[in-house]
């Protein structure tokens, strides 16, 4: 555990000094704020752009607050996930490739601490940013569209955090097991591509980690099927555990691949 705090301090310093601690929260905040704003002012924006035919009446659907929160989530699910997968695919693999990890691996470090220091910093950056962004989103939605039930929002947020933890575990596992390039491809595939597949063909099954963001939205609307939701959470938590154990295993196994 002593190792952990030293290794975590290193991760912290890295992410402060390369500005990730700044720009990742800002990106999530940006989408959290802009989504309600653009939806609310869309008619005016369209008017201002001025390419509406004379006399056309542009009828926008009335959005519920819940719909605004969910449309923010769909932004996070694309740009946010792209940022997480590509931004962190090298978190272990890159250290091996450029040889900086060599001087860690020759020391009596525990690989559990090593992987967990990376997990921890990713959680702070990714989950912290998402919470920050969604709270700002909630505030703007409240001002422009009305209130969201606090209990439902907490349930929604909790579910989305489990999903984010799943994504983080995928990226961490890939980076421990593969090179940066392959880790990027595998993470993209497992997060974005499978999500797409689940969206297209997912009507045939109901229990899947990739359905968690959808269930999160249903919690917000209080329309979720609890059994399916709970089972999906259980499956996801199991997957997270397996991925993390795998990440530690591969981080240790791939020590010999570090550049000397």
């Amino acid at each position: 555990m002593n190792n952990f705090s030293v290794l975590f301090q290193k991760e912290w310093r890295e992410n402060v000094r390369n500005f990730k601690i700044l720009w990742i929260p800002l990106v999530f905040l940006l989408f959290g704020i802009s989504e309600p704003l653009t939806n609310y002012y869309l008619p005016q924006i369209l008017n201002a752009v001025g390419n509406m035919p004379e006399g056309a009446v542009f009828q926008l659907p009335e959005f519920t607050p819940e719909q605004i929160v969910m449309s923010t989530i769909s932004q996070y699910q694309f740009i946010g996930m792209l940022l997480v997968t590509l931004g962190f695919a090298g978190i272990i693999a890159r250290e091996r490739k450029n040889g900086t990890a060599t001087l860690l691996y020759v020391r009596p470090i525990s690989y559990i601490s090593y992987v967990y220091s990376k997990l921890f910093i990713m959680c702070i950056l990714v989950i912290g940013s998402a919470i920050l962004g969604l709270l700002a989103n909630l505030y703007y939605t409240y001002i422009l569209f009305g209130t969201v039930d606090a209990g439902a929002f907490m349930g929604f947020l909790g579910t989305y955090i489990v999903w984010l933890l799943f994504v983080i575990s995928i990226v961490l596992f890939s980076s421990a097991a593969f090179s940066t390039g392959i880790a990027s491809a595998v993470s993209l595939l497992l997060v974005l591509f499978v999500q797409l597949i689940d969206g297209l063909l997912g009507a045939y099954w109901t229990i899947s980690p990739w359905k968690l963001p959808m269930y999160a939205g249903e919690i917000l609307n209080s329309s979720v099927d609890m059994t399916l939701f709970v089972w999906s959470v259980i499956v996801t938590v199991l997957a997270i555990i397996i991925l993390l154990v795998g990440a530690v295993y591969f981080a240790k196994r791939n020590v010999s691949k570090t550049k000397i």
Partner: peptide, 21 residues
């Protein structure tokens, strides 16, 4: 060819490696 974390100072780096050892 030793490779270091370029964003750490020499002292921070040496202190870290000392603790890890």
């Amino acid at each position: 060819y030793p490779k270091f974390y370029s964003w750490l100072t020499a002292l921070e780096y040496t202190e870290m490696t000392a603790k890890l050892s």
